[in-house]
Design a binder for these strands. Sequence first.
DNA 1: CGTGTAAGGAATTCTGACACG
DNA 2: CGTGTAAGGAATTCTGACACG
Lengths: 109, 109
Amino acid sequence: MSFESMPYKDKKVISIGIVRELTGLSLRQIRYYEERKLIFPDRNEKGTRRFSFSDIEKLIEIANKREEGVQTQEIRKEMKKETKPIEKKMLKEMLRGQFNAHFKNNKLM
Amino acid sequence: MSFESMPYKDKKVISIGIVRELTGLSLRQIRYYEERKLIFPDRNEKGTRRFSFSDIEKLIEIANKREEGVQTQEIRKEMKKETKPIEKKMLKEMLRGQFNAHFKNNKLM
DNA sequence: CGTGTAAGGAATTCTGACACG
DNA sequence: CGTGTAAGGAATTCTGACACG
């Protein structure tokens, strides 16, 4: 199942009210950080936001930075650097997936 | 943080609507399986249910058993057997925690 | 810039009950 | 036994806007 293969940490299943409880941030703050492209919750069909545990961890980091007086713009820049290696890893895995699919189709199936 | 120390899998943070999406079960079915003591979602202050990924996995198992015609009573019995070892493990860890706390308080603090 | 708040509407969730079987 | 459904109420979430600064 695709459900099993994805780590729970990145599944977008948490509503904004719970995120508020878990982070201590206000709804306004959470929505604003999305507006500033610091987090990227999914939306369900009717438009309500769905967050992952990763989003929550990110929000906790953001809250800490904000307490230090760092502006959202700066935080976004810092986060870009940090997520780059992850993107590279993802890309690598995607390529491997493509390769495997290709191999399967031509040699085994 | 206590947040970090607990695996995401067991955090009760998912609302019943998402559980329905993820399991394909109806709200009625999910609530009924709780009534029959097959799952144990938390409740927030206002009484709305909060499920964990573990609950969702359990529900998928339950759905499979039900398709085979197994009654909820039977499913509960089967699940009791399966969760016993986990309870033992938890108990062991709790005891170790108590021991460590005791040791710390008397010898180190 | 970052956050609070009141506003109105839409969608969610809850419980207890009746239905069928 | 297991599930559907209509009912009424309460709580959630959404957006765009005004406020302050």
